[in-house]
């Protein structure tokens, strides 16, 4: 009987593994190709963000563009999911706790084939599942509804606890903004995740050093960040959030860490990729992108004149 049970467990495990998206691991030979591929993916995510926000007439470009590289890596390399079955129990969970950066999440999902690219231009429009902040009842694969900073992080902690309780070895990834760290709830959750030794939880901080009105340090200083998370008993990894080899190393280290949750402090540039946005808090908040903003922005991303016109008139993905 015991043997039979063992066989059955192995059988189910095999089914589970075979249905997983296998995590790609870079080797020295294909590293350059993979990096180029990721750069291209991140560029497409940025184009998706710009186009979606342009057509919406509002949205938060700065914090979406800063996390585009992280989003590209997470969705292409790290997260196990089945694009045809958002309910698959073995899937890794990704939560965008900084919900206002959702154009990057939607654009990444479009690149992965979870939604269609043409849907991106419905962002923030009546009846569209692409709500102004991710909403799980509109889009089941976003895992939870966010838009009130700090909450997505606690929800991720709850998923980590719930999955562990049910012996599900899926991992939970949660992306936070730096301004979000000013919410007290984040530190309640940080204490809780360390207390319960949630090594199935990996938080990523998109540390672009800017929030809605100004630099973090002028609004409410969040430093010293590493020391804070270490003091809360987390495994802390600090990287350049635009360098794919560093991003890869960080997620590998996170997966190998036992008995502690991991936080990846990813140093990024607000508005990354768009020259006039980079390092400017003016592009954090819900802004309207003008025709000229769009042309200049897509030029910065290397899009040719013909395609720029097609992104602007909304026919690029027809």
């Amino acid at each position: 009987m015991k043997k039979l049970c063992g066989c059955m467990i192995l059988f189910f495990h095999m089914i589970k593994v075979s249905s997983c998206k296998i995590r790609l691991v870079f080797t020295t030979n294909n590293k350059k190709d993979s990096e180029l591929q990721l750069m291209k993916l991140a560029c497409n995510i940025r184009i998706g963000c710009m186009t979606a926000i342009f057509h919406a007439g509002s949205g938060h470009p700065g914090g979406a563009l800063s996390c585009a590289d992280l989003m590209a890596y997470l969705w292409d390399q790290e997260i196990r999911f089945d694009k045809n079955n958002s309910e698959w129990e073995g899937r890794d969970r990704f939560i965008l706790s900084k919900g206002h950066a959702c154009p990057a999440l939607y654009a990444a999902a479009a690149e992965m084939g979870v939604i269609s690219r043409s849907q991106l231009i419905t962002l923030r429009k009546l009846g569209s599942p692409l709500q102004g902040h991710p909403h799980v009842k509109a889009l089941p694969w976003v895992e939870t509804s966010t838009g009130s900073l700090g909450q997505g992080f606690s929800v991720a902690v709850g998923m980590a606890m719930g999955l562990r309780y049910q012996h599900n070895d899926a991992r939970i990834y949660v992306m936070l903004g730096d301004g979000e760290l000013q919410e007290g709830e984040v530190w309640e959750g940080a204490m809780c995740a360390a207390h319960y030794k949630l090594d199935n939880l990996c938080a990523v901080i998109d540390y672009n050093q800017m929030q809605s009105d100004d630099l973090n340090q002028n609004i409410m200083a969040v430093e010293p960040l590493r020391a804070k998370w270490e003091a809360f008993n987390w495994n802390v990894i600090e990287i350049n959030g635009h360098d794919f080899s560093e991003i890869e190393r960080a997620f590998n280290l996170a997966r190998e860490c036992y008995s502690k949750p991991t936080v990846i402090i990813a140093h990024t540039i607000k508005g990354k990729g768009i020259s006039y946005m980079e390092g400017s808090p003016l592009w954090h908040g819900s802004v309207k992108l003008s025709h000229d903003d769009m042309v200049k922005g897509l030029q910065d991303l290397g899009v040719n004149e013909t395609d720029i016109r097609r992104y602007i008139d909304g026919t690029a993905w027809n």
Partner: peptide
Amino acid sequence: FFQFGIAEQNMMAVAAGMAATGLVP
């Protein structure tokens, strides 16, 4: 039974996360 300490905001949202995994908190 899960203890959250004196931190109700986190507890409430954690409950939502647990519910997302099929438990009834």
